[in-house]
Amino acid sequence: MLAHFSNIITVFLMVAGLFIIIARGNLIKKLIGLSLFQTSVYLLYITPGKLIGGTAPIISPQYTVYSNPLPHVLILTAIVVGVATLALGLALAVRIREAYGSIEEDEILERDHGVEAEEAKEARS
């Protein structure tokens, strides 16, 4: 069970994140879900890299077991990407709030719908 503990956490975060993205209409909450979803991937990479009893990979005659350093490096990059995505998403949310006066998906759709109806009327006349 303990061996699978990290996997269970990973899958839980993954599914929870995806669920939030799909189920929530609030743009900020969607972004939180997206972040959770991405965080789960960090775990997916890093946890198998740790060997119990292993140390940091510095070559020294005292140690024979090392943890794999590569996943950490990779995930460092992925974290940067994740932060950038989140920042851009939040910036878009701010701009959307300025343009529509709302960050609720259904209200935004409604307002767009109104505009489209007007446009259609204009085109007809």
Partner: peptide
């Protein structure tokens, strides 16, 4: 402004 929602 729909460009914003499309991008999002």
């Amino acid at each position: 402004r729909r460009a914003l929602t499309a991008a999002y």
